[in-house]
Amino acid sequence: MILTLLQVALGGALGASARYLTGVGMTALMGKTFPWGTLTVNILGSFLMGVLVVTLANFSATRYAPLLMIGFLGGFTTFSSFSLDFATLYERGDIPLAIGYAAVSVLVSITALFAGLLLTRSLFA
């Protein structure tokens, strides 16, 4: 149990650090007018979740799920930040932008997860 907890903690620290750096990078590239960092990590994290589900299963490596899926991707993806970003856009009066942001975040992230599953399954077929 303690080793699993340490895996989750290490993965979470690395994932949160990667999320922060992604946010900084996206703000530098795209500006502060839209939460590009949060959108990016949610889509990328969903894709990677799909890749990891298939990869870990195919290599009988599910023992790394606490480190990679729960820890790293749990720290990397940001649905709590997503919710705050939505509220911020909404409260500043950008309601169409807030709704569009929510729709794109959910739909593209789910699509990215399926893309990760399909791509990785094709590699192991």
Rank of each mutant, 00 (worst) to 15 (best):
F34N: 12
P96I: 12
V104S: 07
A18L: 14
F47Q: 00
L44A: 13
G25T: 06
G50S: 00
Y64R: 00
L3T: 10
F72D: 01
L68P: 02
I110G: 03
F72S: 05
P96V: 04
S122Y: 12
F72Y: 10
L117W: 11
T78I: 00
V108F: 12
L3K: 10
S60F: 09
N42S: 03
I99C: 07
L84E: 14
T40R: 02
G37H: 06
L119Q: 05
S105K: 06
G116I: 11
A28K: 15
L3V: 12
P35N: 12
L73P: 01
L5I: 14
A18Q: 03
V106L: 11
L68H: 01
D94T: 03
F82V: 02
I2W: 13
G23Y: 11
A125N: 14
T111M: 12
L5Y: 13
Y20L: 13
A9R: 05
L89S: 09
T27S: 12
L73N: 00
A61D: 07
Y64S: 07
G23R: 08
T38A: 07
V24H: 01
G50M: 03
A87D: 09
L48N: 00
S80M: 05
I70C: 08
P66F: 06
Y90K: 09
F59V: 09
T77S: 13
R63L: 05
W36G: 03
L56Q: 08
G31L: 11
L67Q: 01
G116C: 10
I43Q: 06
W36I: 06
I99F: 15
N42D: 09
M49R: 07
A98H: 13
F59Q: 15
G75T: 00
L113C: 15
L123D: 07
F72T: 03
V51Y: 01
G25K: 00
F72R: 03
L6F: 15
K32C: 02
A103K: 01
P35F: 02
A28L: 12
F79V: 01
L97V: 15
G23H: 10
R19S: 04
P35G: 14
G25D: 06
L21P: 01
L48C: 07
T111Q: 08
L48F: 04
Y101I: 13
M26R: 11
L107G: 10
L117E: 08
Y20H: 08
L67V: 13
G11F: 01
W36T: 14
P96R: 04
A98S: 11
L73D: 02
M49T: 00
A16F: 02
L123T: 06
T27I: 13
S60N: 15
G75D: 00
L119K: 06
D94R: 15
R121K: 15
T22K: 09
L67Y: 08
I70T: 15
I95M: 04
T55K: 03
A9T: 11
L73E: 05
G71S: 11
L14I: 07
Q7C: 06
F79M: 05
G93D: 09
V54F: 04
A61M: 07
I99S: 08
I110Y: 14
L68Y: 02
